[in-house]
């Protein structure tokens, strides 16, 4: 039984730290209606910066604000390329993502490991002072849970502010924003900045959890994040009171649980992705069922 609990805890940790990225993609994809491919470059960017800082002896907690800032800069690039230079949304993201691949290599090389003698946010003194009684696995759970909840609250509060309401309006009804004498381009850039800050933050925490950065770790992350957002939104479709961030969080945990399940079932290893795909399909079908007429609307 113990191992089942451990397995569930490990899955929750993965779901939580990747949920930070899902928050970001929820903002671009669901709110701004912007398919932002910057994610594939921005996620390893956060990890690269974090790995370099920690191996150089910087306090691991400092890597969090620094990753947020570099991620925000990446989002700013995509935003400016799209809004100011009128490049199509998909291509703007591709340009930044491509450039970031080289930048990440410049920052950290193609691989960088954080040795066990270096502290991460899961092993640093302040964490040990409060949660020192827990084993590493449960410390990771608590720390990632705190992070995911703190940022959820911040985002939820932001959406209620004037700037946040404008942001939500841009995706739904851009004319309304213009009629309020606001520049919708600026609002879009702001959304991309916030979203990519969260994506890089996720990379920062993953690098510390895995104690490593690799230049290939970003590949496919945008697909993952989109899937989590869609799974979350589908499941809570009939519950309008559920916040978008909750959808993203639950979606991320379910995604990671599906992969863990596919591993645990123990089918031939090359079928792993296929099993994962089937599990997603089942969840989306269940999510779309329900009251009559539900399927038609899905």
């Amino acid at each position: 039984m113990n191992e089942v609990i451990e397995l569930i805890v490990a899955t929750l940790i993965q779901g939580f730290i990747y949920a930070l990225m899902s928050y970001g993609v929820y903002i671009t994809y669901k709110i701004l209606d912007f398919p932002d491919l910057t994610v594939d470059g921005c996620f390893p960017l956060g990890a690269a910066v974090t790995a370099v800082l920690i191996t150089n002896g910087v306090n691991p907690f400092l890597t969090i604000p620094i990753s947020i800032v570099v991620g925000a800069l990446a989002g700013l690039c995509t935003g400016i390329i799209h809004v100011k230079f009128k490049v199509r949304d998909l291509l703007a993201g591709i340009i930044t993502m491509t450039a970031l691949f080289s930048i990440n290599l410049q920052i950290a090389g193609s691989n960088l490991s954080i040795g066990r003698d270096m502290d991460t946010i899961f092993t640093a003194a302040p964490t040990m002072a409060i949660f020192g009684g827990f084993s590493l696995l449960y410390r990771k759970l608590v720390v990632s849970l705190i992070l995911v909840i703190v940022f959820k609250i911040i985002i939820d509060l932001y959406f209620k502010s004037k700037s946040g309401i404008l942001l939500r309006a841009v995706g739904d009804n851009a004319t309304l924003v213009t009629s309020m004498a606001k520049d919708k381009g600026t609002v879009k850039i702001l959304g991309l900045v916030i979203a990519n800050a969260l994506v890089a933050l996720s990379g920062c925490i993953v690098a510390q959890e895995q104690r490593s950065f690799s230049s290939t770790m970003g590949t496919g992350q945008v697909v993952f994040a989109l899937a989590t957002v869609i799974i979350g939104v589908t499941i809570f479709k009939r519950m309008s009171f559920v916040k978008g961030t909750t959808c993203a969080l639950v979606g991320s945990v379910i995604y990671k649980a599906c992969i863990q399940l596919a591993i645990t079932i123990g089918l031939p290893a090359n079928l792993l992705k296929f099993v994962t795909a089937v599990l997603f399909l089942v969840i989306l079908i269940i999510g779309n069922r329900g009251k009559e007429g539900g399927a038609a609307r899905a």
Binding site: E3, A10, Q14, M217, T219, K256
Partner: peptide, 15 residues
């Protein structure tokens, strides 16, 4: 896939 490699490691470790 790096993220899948992570989960495989955790699976083995949990068991």
């Amino acid at each position: 896939d790096d993220a899948t490699a992570t989960q495989i490691g955790q699976n083995f470790s949990s068991k």
